[in-house]
Amino acid sequence: MTDNPMLTSLTAPAPAHLADDVLVEVGLADRMAPLGTAIGVLWVAWNGRGVAAVDLAEDGPAAAAHHQVVSGRRTLLADALPASLAGPIARRLSGDRSARITLDLRGHTDFEVAVWEKALDIPFGEVRPYGWIAAEIGRPKAVRAVGTALGHNPVPLVVPCHRVVRTDGTIGQYSLGGPGNKRAILAAEGLDPDGLETAARRGERLIGSDTTHIVCWPTCRHARRVSAAHRVPFRSLRDAQARGYRACKVCRPTAIEAAA
């Protein structure tokens, strides 16, 4: 080697963040930053492949330490989400389903991913039962497994598992800090969780309109605009069909009698 002293002086260490930036970009390390929401500060983990986690934690170091254990990836704290993520997440949380957010769901089963993708179809301010997800993904008997998959949702709020309720119409459990938070998030979306449960207990599982003879899930926007005078509650899709009603093509109420 005949190194030229003039030019070897031109080598210098790369900026310290460069190696970390590369590892985050290819998805071998994650960054984590706080996000303000209806239920307080949540911690969002992401890398170049997408958003990997949304979690509650005491503080940043606790959030990063927990995510590192769960994901197996080094997790670096950041002050804030990059604008390219903060914008779409804010839009998604305020009900804009066109907001595109890629997710890093490596290590999860096809079934889990199918359940989470289906939960994304539920509009802001509406709920569907576990049995509906099971039916929609072609696994009508897998209601319990759907509940388990939703409980394992690594990106709550971003994937709105809070919009999936028990098949008996009660609000049900929530992985992100318990059922109280699920009620708070649904209330922030304009729903009345207590009212929904009371109606379900009265047997009002589906709502039809006696002018259109179409039957919907109670929170479907088409059900909610039926006036009180034309509102007809049903216990099941079978009851509604026996009275000559057909299922709404938007919210697609399913036969869920068997599952509860």
Binding site: T11, A12, P13, A14, P15, L18, A19, L23, L28
Partner: peptide, 20 residues
């Protein structure tokens, strides 16, 4: 995935210097 970080750390300075 296990070895890529070693590659990055071993070559990041020289790749950056070439680009610079």
């Amino acid at each position: 995935d296990a070895a890529f970080e070693t590659l990055v750390r071993a070559h990041v300075d020289r790749c950056h210097a070439i680009a610079l």
